[in-house]
Amino acid sequence: MNAEEINRSLARIAHQVLEANHGARDLMVLGIPTRGVPLAARLARLMGEVEGHPVPTGQLDVTMYRDDLRSQPTRPVGRTVLPGDVDGAVVVLVDDVLYSGRTVVAALDALHDLGRPAAIRLAVLVDRGHRQVPVRADHVGKNLPTASHERVQVRLAETDDVDAVAILRDTPADTGVGTEGTR
C-alpha cells in the first residue's frame, strides 16, 4: 500500500465507524503503541472533519498485559493517555497490523482495568490473517493474505517519515519497524 491507498482506507474506516455508531457520540479512539497511535490520531481527525467537532483520541499501552512477557527480555513500556473516562464510552481500538490477535486480547484486558466502555470496536490498517485467538476486526483497511514466515512492515510518516505497507518475504535481522509478525 502506498500513501494514497492508506489515506483512502483510513477515510473509509472513519466513515464506517461513524456510520456504525450513528455519529461521533461517546466515541473515543485509542491507538495501541507504537503505530496504532498515529493511526488513531489520523482516524480521529478524519472523523472530526466529517462531524465538524473534534473526536477524543488517546493511546493505550498493553505491554504489561501481554501473555509473552516471560519469554523474552524486559519489554519497554509505552504510555497510556486517555482523553477522558472510559466508562460508557464507545472505544475504537486502532492498531496497524492484526496478526495473532494476542495484542488485541491484551488491549481488552487493559481496558477492562480502566473501566467499563459501552462498546469496544477494533479498527486495523492491515489484517494479515493467522489468528491464534478468536478475535476479529470490525473495520479493516486491507486484507493482506500472507504466509506466516513473511512479515508485514507498516511505515507511517509520523514514525518512519513515509507512508507505506509492504510484505517482506525474507526474514533478515529484526529492523524493529512495525512488524506484528515478530512479536
Partner: peptide
C-alpha cells in the same frame, strides 16, 4: 520491580 522481573529470567532489556 518491572525492570527486574518483567521479562525472562535473564533480566535483560529488550
Amino acid at each position: 520491580l518491572y525492570h527486574l522481573l518483567g521479562g525472562d529470567d535473564e533480566g535483560g532489556t529488550r
